[in-house]
Design a binder for these strands. Structure first.
Length: 568
RNA sequence: CGGGGUGUAGCGCAGCUUGGUAGCGCACUUGGUUUGGGACCAAGGGGCCGGGAGUUCGAAUCUCUUCACCCCGACCA
């Protein structure tokens, strides 16, 4: 490829609206261009990177007996009605009608299509286990796309679906996919990826893992143990809270005036106590219902809404003060507040055994102090709704937990029979009995993986692609391309590279060396080969790796072998 | 969906307060001199100033409205 013909303009300055590195650099190199919010065009270079990532994924999927298929982007409503997801998924599933008024959806994931394809084709346990997958464009109408390719609406994803007769068989295969994922991220050069336990969300099923690239720009919060290998998404993370100081156990209950102090921090400040000695109430409205949930937990902690949703088995939204029913916002307490047709009350584990606590008095301007949970509150059921924070300890080994940010680049789910049941997929087992196969599903976002590598490997000079996914192996960089001898040699070497399978971008511009060097570094091509009149005189070439500060002059005849050695 | 911000040449920006022929830098074209770390000189091309409506003799500039994009939050296999 000749650089002068490459479509995609490089700019000196960062685009004004790019705030993260990968976004800015992928745009500055002209590799990608925005078409609409969260919708992108890829130029040749970005597409080559994406194709190489896809090829690595493909090889690893095939290695665990995956069968590459292709499911449609557009599907009829009826297919999604079968699983129930046409109505259960929100606006991120884009729905539209064709010319006859028939309702269609754009695929955001393909469990329905996979089961539809498999159910008539798999009829016997003899055909199990098996896995089908595709690498294909998905559309999700994200409420807020952001960060270049990190969070988009249209993207290419590898999605795989496996079918099993038994849970044991699924679990065995799940491990194989797990290992394949580890190999994939290693091969594309994405270090710093960890697998965490996650919430299965709308996918259904129980066990799932997310493969997270650890990065400050990540929008997922992960809880990681400093000592053992406990790792979990914040949504499901558990931790041991610091125990309460119950030395002032014998206090008697007493109403105290707290005036306008409403928030826990204000109440604690007013009474000159720490928030640990308070019990706070957090109120949520249950979605599409008039019910409210009142959560009580220790004042220094926060509610983990994902855990709460799971426990009450309803979707919730934070309540605003205006829609509180018969509750005194800011002075809500567990004493005298009972469950009713419109109210569910949930008590967090953090309250167990606490004493000397301050609670709301359920009337304006007052709280109650000296409350002992065991003595004064009749709580029959404690649950875990606490959001883990940096101060907590690991529930496995007791060592401190840390909270980090991550970008989800892949995930694996043990789905169970959710889709095979709802969509009526059955196979005959050994005993001639029809049973629903057990499914697993496994995704990797190609564009997000690409952006994550860009984010991880780039430096102040620009991008820096691992050679396994680089758009070209070599940036062939003749200085004085206007010199006929240099030009001749350049084309000779270019042809030799092509023959040797060395992918080359040739900078065929007659511009100053600085421009060429900065462009080669900005684009992140792993190997730069420099030719010049001076080098020509000694029959040598210069080779410089993007990862190394120093360049090396080598005999011209050695160049191909040297590069092949680097490629490995 | 809530809060904030920005829309002027391919990119980065000025001009708007106080209305009067649309500018700068980079990139691009042509000619010349250069060229081992973002060269220089000269001459060029490129704009419905996001869209619509208004005020005005006259609008990039003032008013109203709408759209798009970015950031934060809500939401999210």
């Amino acid at each position: 490829m000749y650089l002068s013909k490459l479509v995609g303009a490089r700019t000196k300055e960062n685009p004004a609206d790019a705030v993260i590195k990968s976004h800015a650099l992928l745009m500055r190199t002209g590799f990608i261009k925005a078409v609409a919010g969260g919708i992108w065009s890829f130029g040749m270079a970005a597409q080559r990177i994406a194709l190489k990532i896809e090829q690595i994924i493909r090889e690893e999927m095939n290695r665990i007996d995956g069968q590459e298929c292709s499911f449609p982007v557009v599907m009829p409503k009826e297919l999604w009605d079968e699983s129930g997801r046409y109505s259960s998924i929100g606006d991120e599933l884009i729905r539209f009608t064709d010319r006859t008024g028939h309702s269609l959806v754009l695929g955001m994931t393909h469990e329905e299509a996979a089961v539809h394809f498999a159910r008539d084709n798999i009829t016997s346990y003899v055909q199990l286990p098996c896995m089908i997958y595709q690498i294909q464009t998905k559309f999700r109408d994200e409420a807020r796309s952001r960060g270049g390719l990190i969070r988009v609406r249209e993207f290419v994803m590898k999605d795989a679906y496996s079918f099993h007769l038994t849970q044991d068989d699924l679990e065995e295969y799940y491990e194989k996919v797990f290992d394949a994922y580890v190999r994939i991220f290693k091969r594309i050069g994405l270090d710093n990826v960890i697998a965490v336990k996650s919430d299965s969300g709308m996918m259904g099923g129980k066990i799932s893992h997310e493969f997270m690239f650890l990065s400050d720009i990540g929008e997922d919060k992960l809880v990681i143990c400093s000592h053992c290998d406990y790792k979990a998404n914040m949504e499901v993370a558990e931790g041991i809270i610091t125990p309460n100081d119950n030395s002032c156990d014998n206090q008697t209950m007493r109403e105290v005036f707290t005036g306008s102090a409403k928030e826990i921090s204000e109440v604690a400040e007013f009474l000159k106590i720490t928030s640990v000695k308070t019990i706070k109430a957090v109120v949520y409205n249950i979605k599409s219902s008039t019910k409210q949930v009142v959560c009580f937990l220790r004042g220094d902690l926060e509610v983990n809404e994902a855990k709460l949703k799971k426990i009450i088995k309803c979707d919730v939204v934070p309540a605003s003060l205006s829609d509180s029913l018969d509750i005194v916002a800011g002075n809500i307490g567990p004493l005298g507040l009972s469950e009713s047709a419109n109210r569910v009350i949930v008590y967090d584990n953090s309250l167990r055994g606490c004493s000397g606590m301050v609670i709301g008095a359920n009337k304006p301007d007052y709280h109650i102090s000296g409350v002992s949970v065991n003595r004064d509150l009749k709580i029959s059921n404690f649950v875990d709704i606490t959001k883990v924070n940096d101060g907590m300890r690991c529930s496995v080994c007791g060592k401190p937990l840390t909270v980090k940010n991550g970008i989800e680049v892949g995930n694996i789910f043990q789905l169970g029979t959710k889709y095979t049941t709802s969509m009526n997929m059955k196979v005959l087992n050994k005993n001639g009995v029809l049973v629903n196969p057990i499914m697993g599903c496994y995704g990797i976002g190609v564009g997000r993986a690409l952006a994550s590598v860009a984010e991880d490997k780039s430096d102040e000079k620009g991008l820096n692609w691992p050679i396994s996914i680089a758009p070209w192996d070599v940036y062939l960089c003749p200085l004085r391309y206007d010199n006929e001898d240099v030009k001749d040699l350049t084309h000779q070497i270019y042809d030799e590279f092509v023959k040797a399978g060395i992918e080359t971008i040739l900078d065929d511009r007659s511009v100053s060396p600085g421009v060429k060097f900065t462009d080669s570094e900005l684009m992140g091509i792993p190997i730069r080969v420099v030719l010049s009149p001076k080098l020509l005189a000694t029959d040598s070439v210069e080779i410089k790796l993007r990862n190394h500060a120093q360049s090396e002059i080598i005999p011209r005849k050695d160049i191909i072998q040297t590069i092949l050695n680097i490629k490995g």
